[in-house]
Amino acid sequence: MRLFAFGSNGSGQLAIGHQEDVSNPTQCLFTTDPESKDTTQDINEEITTIAAGGNHTLLLTKTGTVYAAGANTDGRCGTSTSPENVFNRVSITTASGTVDTFSRVSATWEGSIFVSSEATDDKVYVLGTNTKGELGVTEPLVSSAVCVPDFPPRGTRVAALASGMAHSVAVLSNGDVWGWGGARKGQLGSENVVRIAGPVRIQVPFFAEEVVCGREFSVVSGRGQFVVLGDPGNRWGVLNVPECFVSGEGGSRGLIGYPYEGIRASWHGIYVHAAGLEGDAEGEVGSLVAWGRNDRGQIPPRTLPTPAVLAVGSEHVVALLKNGEVVACGWGEHGNCGEDLDALRNVADRVNLISLPETLEGKVVRVGAGCATSWMVVE
């Protein structure tokens, strides 16, 4: 596997050897030996998760290895700060030994959450800045990894994990939902609460299986049902569930009546992706139904062919189409949507075709999107 990145890179979060933004896919670097600072462009593992904070990136592989790059002054990357501008393997030191294999990861704006699946239970380790309780502990700064106490509850595992800018939500193996961090906008299902420093149960009216987080909202889903937890003020309309998903229960709940690949979230938008369906002429029900903020082209045009893989970043979308092409749209100021931008630095009402270097042989098998960052996995 090879990983290519483009977009915001002021802290080296693209791991491409420097700290300049780029608008064309550039191959990422990985350390092979932290002592010698040797690097490689190939990774012999399948990347399953790309989690991006404001200025750092976490990669989780199928074997449980995690790599991190970017800002690390508060320890959020779980690695040494040298060598810089490359991906380094995460290894956490605890009182009982070293942990270097994980099952889930997520990233807040300035923090990281790592789930380690051990023989009888899961443990949740956190690192970084924690001003709003987004790491699930009380310390405002966690420069050495700590374990979130008494979580998950005994007999359960972490089945899904997501973070917004300052809140985090976990779905457990028994279908329960727990969250912590900033809560002022209702993103944790509570009203009149500014922050929640440790995990609390979030009540949802179905067996939960997945969760995604926007900047200040959460979408919990399971078995075709979903609920949006967010600000009743509804500035960007994320609570306005499209008519094709209205469940009859009212409020911000929805029911998806066909197989779908998953639900994604930008900072202010929601995207339901069904790779097996083609959209109708009106775009009401089809391969991609999206709603929310669209002042920068964050919602792809209805003419977008069916994506095989859909990735949604803070304010942009990257899609791998079924014909193997990669396209992007939305806010592209940092190069994360390619080079062809309008006067406001957006790709709106259209998409940009993103091409790998002409000299490269390989097939794009996965795409990712973060905070003004974009990613392409090539085999």
Rank of each mutant, 00 (worst) to 15 (best):
G7F: 08
S8D: 04
A15C: 07
G17I: 15
D21E: 14
S23C: 14
S23T: 12
S23A: 15
N24E: 11
P25C: 14
T26D: 05
C28S: 13
F30C: 09
K37L: 15
D38F: 10
Q41T: 15
E46N: 13
T48Q: 07
G54K: 09
G54C: 10
L58H: 02
L59P: 03
T61A: 09
T65V: 11
V66H: 00
A69I: 13
N72Y: 01
T73I: 13
G75M: 15
T79G: 06
T79L: 12
P83M: 14
V86M: 07
V90G: 01
S96H: 11
S103P: 05
R104E: 10
A107E: 01
T108W: 02
E110D: 12
G111R: 07
S117E: 08
E118C: 05
E118D: 08
A119D: 10
D122R: 00
K123C: 04
Y125E: 02
V126N: 01
G128T: 04
G128R: 06
N130P: 07
K132R: 13
L135M: 11
G136H: 12
G136A: 11
T138I: 08
V142C: 03
V142F: 08
A145K: 04
D150N: 15
F151W: 15
P152N: 10
A159N: 05
A160Q: 06
L161R: 04
G164K: 01
M165T: 13
H167E: 04
V171I: 14
L172I: 13
D176Y: 02
G181H: 07
G182S: 12
K185W: 09
V204D: 01
V204G: 01
A208D: 02
V212F: 00
C213H: 02
R215A: 06
R215L: 09
E216W: 06
F217G: 00
V219E: 00
V219P: 03
R223L: 02
G224T: 07
Q225N: 13
Q225H: 12
L229M: 11
D231I: 05
D231Y: 02
P232R: 15
L239W: 01
N240M: 10
P242F: 04
E243L: 08
C244T: 14
G248I: 10
I256H: 02
G257K: 14
Y260P: 03
G262Y: 00
A265C: 12
W267V: 03
I270C: 09
H273Y: 05
H273P: 06
E284M: 11
E284D: 08
W291Y: 03
N294G: 07
R296A: 10
R296C: 08
I299Y: 00
I299T: 01
P300A: 00
P301S: 10
T306M: 09
P307N: 10
G313W: 04
H316F: 08
V318S: 03
V318I: 14
V318T: 05
N323F: 06
G324K: 07
G335C: 03
N336L: 06
C337T: 14
G338W: 12
D340W: 02
L344G: 08
A348W: 00
V351M: 10
N352E: 04
I354P: 02
S355E: 15
E361H: 12
G362Q: 12
G368W: 03
A372V: 03
A372D: 13
A372F: 08
T373N: 11
